[in-house]
Design a protein around this nucleic acid. Structure first.
Length: 257
DNA sequence: ATGGTCGAGTATCGA
């Protein structure tokens, strides 16, 4: 089973690129973030034409997450599981796909360490951990995929010195990610490439992509039963090139069926 | 690491 995650930064703009990419990447399950669509305008038909069922949680304009699957989509849950407080934004959707519990997540950016939005980010990450406890058992096949807006380690940013005092690298958010890993989730791409400095996001500005000024913030977290079966992983940098790219590249992971 | 760009929507704001 091939699992992928991609922050598309507006599915309205990006649909042609996503369709093209599905045609050659051939993932079985795709987690999309930042669709920036309302549910009523989500292009289910375009995906069903390519063999994918799709579910979406969006409010239009900002945020918005989706799961595409050609191995089934059941038990769909938009937002955090009860009894957690509802999220004010549309940042998580969970479904059962091909025997795994899959969540597509768009973790809040945080903006700056002194921002209310940073506190929201930390609280959101805490609720994500609780959500996963509510929707999955300890030995279950679980894939939490998305834009975490966290670089797990300093080598996951192009220059750690440039990020001193910034979000995405602060200890509290890394600790929150660590709490998910303590729960048994494995950063599948890092496990596959222990030493490589490979990124999944590059700011549109200043030619960052071509200058290799990126960050690895798009993660595929797998529970142990899935993580042990990983056979291949890739950041598809080609999808960041060319006409009208997202500022994120897709991350793909193959796991044993 | 902003400032250089995008995409929301049409003046700015968010990333």
């Amino acid at each position: 089973m091939r699992i992928a995650t991609w922050n598309v930064n507006s599915l309205k703009i990006r649909l042609p690129r996503v369709e093209e990419w599905l045609g050659y990447a051939r993932p079985d399950v795709v987690c999309l973030q930042e669709t920036k669509l309302a549910d009523a305008t989500f292009p289910h038909l375009a995906f069903s034409a390519l063999g994918y069922e799709s579910v979406h949680h969006g409010g239009g304009q900002w945020n918005g997450v989706a799961i595409l699957s050609r191995v089934g989509v059941d038990d769909v849950l938009a937002g955090f599981a009860s009894p957690l407080d509802p999220d004010s934004d549309t940042r998580i959707i969970t479904a059962r796909c091909g025997g795994a519990v899959v969540s597509s997540v768009y973790v809040p950016n945080g903006r700056s360490l002194d921002s209310d939005h940073y506190q929201y980010k930390l609280a959101w990450l805490g609720k994500l951990r609780q959500h996963l406890d509510l929707v999955s058992g300890p030995d279950e096949r679980v894939a939490v995929c998305g834009d975490f807006n966290i670089a797990p380690e300093d080598r996951d940013v192009w220059d750690p010195k440039a990020f001193v005092g910034a979000t995405h690298v602060s200890q509290p958010e890394r600790d929150a990610l660590g709490a998910l890993e303590e729960r048994g989730l494995v950063d599948a791409f890092r496990a596959r490439y222990p030493d490589d400095r490979l990124y999944s996001y590059w700011d549109y500005r200043a030619g960052d992509f071509h200058e290799h000024r990126g960050m690895r913030i798009d993660l595929v977290l797998l529970s142990q039963p899935l993580a042990v079966g990983v056979t291949w992983a890739l950041v598809d940098r080609n999808a960041r090139k060319g006409k009208l790219p997202s500022d994120h590249a897709p991350v793909l992971v193959d796991v044993a069926d």
